[in-house]
């Protein structure tokens, strides 16, 4: 069987985590190519619909990552994001998409290495877990 290569959609905030991703690049921190960065202005603008869409379109995991508490450029968007992700955990968790597949992290602008580490860890764990919604091609 072909080795499973998961696809991870990462909604990263323009201010902190995107900078960290850039920093990971300039500091030559390699991370697996399984992640697709989607830059958003703030984690607070990540509509739960986007997360659901990502899973239904075939993502094996979704990462939402923004500024540390207190650092949000928009004062408190990350706190709002945290409640939304909690809601999504509550709903998607019932249908087999558990919290390992939907992660929320705070990765600050200087945490390039941390960013690479998070991606590494997540890819490794999702490889273990296997595809998210492989068996539902017909039913959605």
């Amino acid at each position: 069987m072909e080795r499973f290569e998961p696809t991870i959609i990462a909604f990263v905030c323009n201010w902190c985590t995107y900078t960290a991703a850039d920093l990971a690049g300039t500091s030559r921190q390699k991370y697996p190519p399984n992640v697709r960065l989607i830059r958003v202005m703030c984690t607070g603008m990540v509509d739960p619909k986007y997360v659901v869409k990502a899973f239904l379109s075939g993502a094996d995991a979704v990462l939402v990552s923004g500024c540390h508490p207190g650092d949000c450029h928009y004062i408190n968007g990350n706190y709002k994001a945290r409640r939304r992700v909690r809601l999504l955990h509550g709903i998607l968790g019932r249908f087999g998409i558990d919290r390992e597949r939907l992660r929320l992290t705070w990765i600050g602008a200087s945490d390039g290495i941390e960013f690479a580490k998070v991606i590494h860890t997540m890819v490794a764990e999702i490889k273990e877990l296997g595809p998210a919604v492989s068996d539902m091609k017909l039913v959605i």
Partner: peptide
């Protein structure tokens, strides 16, 4: 332009320009 208004709006009556729902999809 933080978009938190767009994210709370259930039917996308509120939107963030250049981060439209259909665009994000």
């Amino acid at each position: 332009g933080c978009g938190s208004c767009a994210a709370v709006c259930t039917n996308s009556a509120s939107f963030l320009n250049n981060y439209l729902d259909q665009q994000m999809f």
